[in-house]
Amino acid sequence: MFDLRQLRYFVEVAETLSFTQAAQRLHISQPPLSQQIQALEADLGVRLLDRNRRRVALTEPGRIFLAEAKAILARAESARTVVTEAAAGFTGQLGLAYATSVSFHPALPETLLRFSHAAPGVSLHLMEMPTGAQYDAILSGQIDVGLLRSPPEGVANARQLTMEVIDEEPLILALPTGHRLAKQEKVAMADLANERFVAPPRTAAATLIDRLNLLAAKAKFRPNIRQEAQQIPSLLPLVAAGLGVALVPASLQAVHLDKVAFARIDDPEAFWLLAVAWRVDNTSPVLESFLRTVREARAKLGLG
């Protein structure tokens, strides 16, 4: 059976109609080139070239075979490219989940933009998912990687997971513009002991509720949560309506609402982790390519 080398040799001769020029292009001597063409013709059982001392010409079978040979070589090169890009993580699929609260963090759009440019051949499947559900989905193979808000503490089979911190995003206070603390740049948690809070239910944002409870406990009070909203961005209209104050990630300041002011929390533990997590045994080149992009985005944004 003929091989790709013989096809390349034949195409060169057929296009130049010269064994001498073809040999020069292929960087080989003329005798082995002639031998390979003869072997190809013998394998096919047809004469592809009419040649004498003065000229080389394609036979009719040779003309037809030239088109087929070019198609085979192009297909082989395409296969090489596909395999090479797959090995480099530039083609394939990636399942990515992110917590709703990450939607406004600059790391998400920066990473997605960079990854789409670096690996346009990757089919990216995006979904919003709470942190706890993300860990379960990573372990089950439903997703490859997650952008989430806490370490896998208490997660079954946590040893099968790897987590890398992207940012410790400040948690800030959202409060009505007419609030007594609205004009302060920094607020002590103790000043909030008698305030009404709006917050997501624990089922939707357990890590945020845990952080709120931690900060309040340090200030020796328990937060009075009077109203809930399923999505963290939905807390801001409740704050604007005067229903309470809210602990929110600093990136939510990108949402501009009248009657909502923001203030920093005077506590070094007023932050919310942003991390990327994946299975230890996931050796997908696409995943490796994505993680490289995450690190590049983190460096570009000056995080971590």
Rank of each mutant, 00 (worst) to 15 (best):
F2N: 08
D3C: 10
Q6S: 07
R8K: 14
V13R: 01
A14V: 08
A14D: 01
R25W: 04
R25K: 15
S29T: 15
Q30C: 04
Q30P: 02
P31A: 15
G45R: 13
R47S: 10
L48V: 03
N52T: 14
N52Q: 08
R53D: 08
R55Q: 14
L66D: 09
E68S: 12
A71N: 13
S78W: 08
T84M: 09
A87P: 05
T91M: 02
G92W: 02
G95F: 07
T100F: 06
S101Y: 03
A107M: 12
P109N: 05
P109R: 02
E110W: 03
E110V: 12
R114L: 13
P120G: 13
P120I: 13
L124E: 05
E128I: 10
P130V: 02
T131V: 06
G132W: 00
Q134F: 02
Q134S: 15
D136Y: 03
A137D: 08
I138D: 01
S140E: 07
D144Y: 01
V145H: 02
P151I: 10
P152F: 09
Q160S: 13
Q160I: 05
E164P: 05
E164R: 15
D167C: 02
D167V: 00
E168H: 14
I172V: 14
I172Y: 01
L175A: 01
K183N: 12
A188Y: 07
E195H: 06
P201W: 11
R211V: 07
R211T: 15
L215I: 11
P223V: 10
N224M: 08
R226Y: 04
Q231M: 10
P233F: 00
L238R: 01
A241N: 12
G242I: 03
V245D: 01
V245I: 15
P249N: 01
P249I: 00
S251I: 02
S251M: 03
L257D: 10
D266F: 03
D267P: 04
W278D: 03
W278H: 14
R292Q: 11
R295N: 11
L301C: 12
G304I: 03
